[in-house]
């Protein structure tokens, strides 16, 4: 599936912020990365776009969201985590462990050096 096809299926994504030319708009790199991973997993057939839209919309219509929609990609990441957990691809506790490992790795990395998971002082990484 090409990016062009993805753009077409983007119309089925509830509430996606779009630029004038129809492409998605990102405020920060992690948002683009989360978006790109989702596109890739869909290309690999891990889930259909309608399955994805269903899970995402459940996250988007939860009570307590920011009125201005600025937490759209927080919902996106929550939906991605949940669909991967439901499909038994990424377990929730593995994800929590890997998240904390990356945070420790970032804090242990001196400025000017690339942040890599090996810098996690506890060294357990994501495994």
């Amino acid at each position: 599936m090409s990016l062009h096809d993805v753009s077409k299926s983007l119309r089925d994504v509830p509430g996606l912020p779009l630029a004038q030319d129809g492409g998605p708009v990102f405020a920060e790199p992690w948002q683009a990365e989360a978006f790109a991973m989702t596109v890739r997993l869909h290309e690999r057939g891990v889930f259909s776009w309608s399955e994805w839209a269903e899970v995402l919309s459940q996250e988007l219509y939860r009570p307590g969201r920011c009125a201005d929609g600025s937490d759209y990609y927080e919902c996106w990441v929550a939906a991605l985590s949940r669909i991967l957990s439901e499909l038994s691809i990424v377990r929730g506790d593995d994800l929590e462990r890997a998240t904390k490992a990356w945070q420790r790795a970032a804090e242990a990395t001196p400025h000017g050096k690339p942040i890599v998971l090996e810098n996690d002082p506890l060294g357990k990484g994501a495994a």
């Binding site: 989360a34 985590s81 990356w102």
Partner: peptide, 24 residues
Amino acid sequence: GNEFSDMQARVKALETLLTAKGLI
């Protein structure tokens, strides 16, 4: 040093786990 927001770290964690599984 540096720090990652919760979202930055979570997205990196997803990327690590999915890469390890050969999915991305």
